[in-house]
Design a protein around this nucleic acid. Structure first.
Lengths: 135, 135
DNA sequence: TATTGTTATACTCTATAACTATA
DNA sequence: TATAGTTATAGAGTATAACAATA
């Protein structure tokens, strides 16, 4: 049943996801903002900063970049005039859905930079995890 | 037998490895150079650039930083006067061995930035991997 | 003439500090 | 007075291009 999950398939998903990001000129954190909106709706910049462990000024920088390209929009926060919600546009929504369908960036991040030594350590860890998950 | 591998233990290794890097003021790629030397002996800058997928100028920058702190040294390449080998000093060797004993940076890289959605994807992937590794 | 590595320079992403507007 | 977000500025890490030395 799970035979089809070959290394080749995994690699293909990773590569096509990366090329999708590159093609659309999105950085990891830009993609992450779109992805968080897709998961949980509009976000306040401060919540994004907290969740992504970045400073508010950095969120401004990232949202500015996304906004200039028409991928997100800022809309007023009715209950606090100092802040605003960050939501994606239809274009932004389509882009993140396309990217997600092409791969998974957690997997990519995990495997992208592995060398042999790291892979060995991960293999050991997977064996240990496997024993826990499938005793 | 594997009961001891609790989340707590894993987290402890990761945290202590990170604080080791911070304490010694080493970036990931500086550590990686030391680690590669520990695995395979002295390296030529061009081979490092290839292997780490960085440009030669960036390797110069990284090696300069390590050299100024006495963690690596450049020694002539007898068979090509244009290049040199990058090897660690005894201090550098001790540092990478200490770091390795405190954690594993592949594991750290994999888990450090995960949010819930990413964790879900990884869980699914681990289930699939588990079926392959422990059928 | 081609290649290795360095230097000079610029760009991206992040942070800190000072500021504006609102609470 | 405190908080949310922006602006200005700086620093770390990367890349590109021009260069020197050697092959």
């Amino acid at each position: 049943m799970y035979r089809e999950l070959s290394d080749k398939m995994t690699r293909h998903r990773v590569v096509s996801f990366l090329s999708h990001l590159r093609k659309n000129d999105l950085t990891m954190n830009q993609y992450k903002i779109l992805s968080l909106i897709e998961q949980q709706g509009p976000w306040l910049p401060n919540r994004l900063a907290e969740h992504m462990e970045l400073k508010a000024a950095t969120i401004t920088y990232l949202v500015d970049a996304l906004e200039q390209r028409g991928l997100v929009a800022r809309t007023p926060n009715p209950s606090d005039g100092r802040s605003h919600y960050v939501n994606f546009t239809e274009t932004g929504r389509q882009l993140v859905l396309d990217a997600r369908s092409e791969g998974d960036y957690a997997v990519m991040e995990s495997f992208r930079q592995m060398d042999q030594d790291e892979a060995d350590h991960l293999y050991i860890l997977l064996r240990l995890l496997g024993k826990k998950l499938f005793p």
